[in-house]
């Protein structure tokens, strides 16, 4: 899983205001606010960075324990997947 790359779902509108990311779900009209840590991760989900790279950047930025951060980031990704806020990037056929 950690080598996967994800993109934000097409049903999502999002931006970050004052350090917190806001997500507006266009189909259900729900609004979600992320805290600072979740926003940091959310803003790196761009279809380019692998989960492992995002974990490393969190370790560097928050200067925490690698195993703890890896677990937290993985849990967060699982939540985002189950809430259909992100989807696996489809590989382009060359």
């Amino acid at each position: 899983m950690n080598n996967n790359r994800f993109v934000k779902s097409k049903r999502v509108s999002t931006n970050t205001i004052n350090g917190n990311s806001f997500i507006y779900l266009e189909d259900t009209k729900e609004t979600i606010q992320l805290d600072e840590v979740a926003s940091f991760i959310w803003n790196q989900i761009n279809g380019v960075r692998k989960i492992s790279e995002i974990i490393n950047s969190c370790v560097n930025y928050f200067e925490g324990d690698y195993c703890e951060i890896k677990t937290s980031v993985s849990d967060f990704f699982n939540t985002l997947i189950s809430e259909k806020l992100i989807e696996k990037r489809r590989r382009k056929i060359e």
Binding site: I17, Y24, T31, I32, Q33, L34, D35
Partner: peptide, 18 residues
């Protein structure tokens, strides 16, 4: 994650933060 916000909550925050 905090849900149950409204668009107005976002626009009000934006108003405060310009």
């Amino acid at each position: 994650m905090i849900a149950d916000l409204s668009i107005k909550d976002i626009t009000d925050l934006a108003k405060q933060k310009i």
